[in-house]
């Protein structure tokens, strides 16, 4: 059976240490969303983080919620789903240093080298959402919007949302502190079979650029 763990946030180094690739995780506490526009704002334009940011949350969710502002000033959070994280890799080293974030949650993981070179040395790990479409289950886990930053400027999808969550999950642990990756391990097994799938299928009449072994070759 797959191992299941519930963790209170902010996450401690001991909790991080205990998580192994393939474990199922539920979270309780505060998580924040931040993606390209927030990263740009803080790290490229040099703007300030909200007060006491690092002590509030050390979990960065790569997410744009389906949220709607209500007339009474509150927010209606419907579904919550992660977005693909590999696009944010260039920001992460500086972001982790600045915010002391220890868990990244997103869709699809990041390249193995990022775990070895960026996350693991900073005591951080990666959790992936499950199946990627569990918006309703994750939406249930959001108890309240603690605060939202730069909503007018960045819009609903790119604003920084701070969610108070309970039993928020499930997530799967992708990377550990050694830089191992569940996606990489699984991908290697799948890759072993790939060549055999093409056996007996004739070559295409016209190749595509990048499909030949030598890029100086003509396509035909």
């Amino acid at each position: 059976m797959l191992r299941e763990v519930s963790i209170n946030l902010p996450v401690t180094p001991e909790d991080i240490e205990s998580l192994t690739p393939g474990s199922i995780v539920y979270l309780n506490g505060i998580v924040y969303t931040a993606r390209e526009r927030v990263y740009d704002k803080i790290m490229v334009k040099g703007e300030k983080l909200p007060d006491n940011f690092s002590s509030l949350s050390n979990v960065n969710f790569h997410c744009s919620p389906a949220a709607a502002p209500q007339e009474d000033g509150s927010y209606h959070i419907g579904g919550v789903t992660a977005t693909a994280s590999f696009r944010f890799s260039k920001y992460l080293a500086d972001w982790l240093d600045l915010t002391q974030t220890k868990i990244i949650i997103g869709k699809g993981g990041m390249p193995g080298d990022d775990y070895k070179n960026i996350l693991a040395p900073r005591g951080a790990i990666y959790l992936t959402t499950v199946g990627y479409g569990t918006g309703a289950l994750l939406g249930r886990g959001v108890q309240a919007v603690e605060s939202v930053h730069w909503l007018d400027e960045l819009g609903i999808a790119q604003a920084m949302w701070m969610f108070r969550v309970k039993n928020f999950g499930p997530f799967l642990v992708d990377s550990d502190l050694q830089g191992n990756s569940l996606f990489a391990q699984q991908g290697e097994i799948v890759n072993q079979n790939i060549e055999s799938l093409y056996e007996g299928l004739k070559e295409p009449a016209l190749h595509r650029y990048g499909e030949t072994h030598d890029r100086k070759n003509e396509l035909m």
Partner: peptide
């Protein structure tokens, strides 16, 4: 396979949660 099976079972639970709560099954609508 255990992991693949877990993902699909979780998705089925998610559909049920969406219908019960009347919330979108996926937030990337």
């Amino acid at each position: 396979e255990q992991l693949s099976g877990f993902v699909i079972k979780t998705m089925v639970k998610n559909y049920e949660a969406a219908t019960e709560d009347r919330r979108p099954m996926c937030a990337d609508t």
